[in-house]
Design a protein around this nucleic acid. Structure first.
Lengths: 230, 230
DNA sequence: CTAGTATTCAAATAATCAATTGAATACTAG
DNA sequence: CTAGTATTCAATTGATTATTTGAATACTAG
């Protein structure tokens, strides 16, 4: 085997990693998988893709080794194949944010003021939450909350937020988080809350990054991990 | 703009970063750019692509913000748009190595024994080089050496290695490096040297990573940075 | 100005990839 | 076993992307 061939083979192998992450839908899937394992159907529903299409995308990512699958009964549960992948995704996001002017603008599209919307760093949040100084708000769907959340966080899915405002304190800061730096759930929540006169901020990044950082995670005990439909 | 639209727009923007790195040729170009700025023609020659094709690939990476260009006289000099990109590339390589069994195998295809070929960490090399305990060998072409190298490193391009063996000490360890963890130059050099009875090892990764790690870099004074052909 | 060079562009073709469809597989429950 | 469900596969279509070609642009040197 010639040196030139070897080189090209290596590059195209490494490019397979890139290929797994060069499509919007696949990125979205990866982001959901960063939160825990999911079935094909669940992922299809979350992303709005057809089941077959979802399956195809998962297939290519599986061949690139980014995603692993385990079959249990009727369902195939997919998950990320390692923590390194979360780091790759963060790296891509950071690059996108700094190099593509559009992204930052899009992310802030909903928000009026930027000043007070600076996210609160994870460590700082952890300390202040321990002292009972803030209310931590998890705005993801209950299943995601159940499979792991920031200790002491209250789960109010975004959809229910409007109805459940009275459960939240007006005299204390509320810190919302969701799936990651580009997940719009927390942005929305903060926007809604601020509109209603609450003192609200976002947490830095989201839950996958929190777990990745090695910070404590709380789980709801009897997780119904094989719920039929969500 | 709906929430769903916003989300998809963000994902597809981030995917643009992935797209810049999901093609073998582009990865190769990025790797060369990690060593310093290059003209289109130089890159085309290095990669074996046509000039037009190289230009096209550079164009898409430029639009993704990974690569920047500066025109000086007749030439356009391309370079990486930031250090974060070196990190992204490392991340991809690490993933490829751990998740794609093929890559590790390919990289080691030339090598007989693995044991004594463990690379020497950068920090360790720096210390031992300062004490004069090792000979550091840069096996890249002279132009790359000139634009920056490990302090005290001796430049012997791989092609000339066989002829210039007498310049190297037999009683001292020789540590070779080249462009990065998957660059085969250093592998080849080590294999050749060991065959001739030298004590040779590779340095961890390569020069771009050395610089990225913030370690000292030496430059040849009067760099002829606008050399016509290389 | 002209000749020469580096790069880019535009258009065309070749190659690859995404998404859909309908059938096939693999499993569970009865 | 049969009926039902989740997932995958194979084949097709449509869309995007890679590469080549030849011409256009932008610059330098004389």
């Amino acid at each position: 085997m010639s040196r030139q061939n070897l080189k090209q083979q290596i590059y195209s192998q490494v490019a397979r990693i890139g290929k797994a992450a060069c499509h919007g839908h696949r990125l979205e899937l990866l982001e959901y998988l960063a939160q825990g394992e999911r079935t094909v159907e669940a992922l299809a529903k979350l992303t709005g893709l057809s089941v077959a299409n979802t399956s195809q995308h998962l297939r290519v990512m599986r061949h690139s080794g980014l995603v692993s699958a385990r079959k249990d009964g009727l369902y195939v549960y997919y998950s990320l194949a390692g923590d390194e992948i979360v780091r790759l995704l963060s790296s891509m996001r950071r690059l996108a944010e700094s190099h593509l002017a559009d992204v930052g603008r899009l992310v802030r599209a909903y928000l009026t003021v930027k000043d007070e919307l600076e996210p609160i760093p994870r460590r700082e949040l952890l300390e202040r939450a321990r002292k009972g100084m803030v209310t931590v708000l998890d705005v993801r769907p209950p299943e995601e909350y159940a499979s792991g959340h920031v200790p002491g966080a209250k789960n109010v899915p975004l959809k229910e937020l409007a109805k459940r405002l009275k459960e939240l304190p007006k005299n204390q800061e509320v810190v919302a988080y969701c799936r990651g730096p580009h997940c719009v759930l927390a942005f929305d929540a903060v926007a809604q809350l601020r509109e209603k006169g609450f003192r609200a901020r976002r947490m830095q990044d989201g839950f996958p990054e929190w777990r990745e950082a090695g910070l404590p995670v709380e789980k709801t005990a009897a997780t119904e991990s094989r719920s039929g439909k969500n």
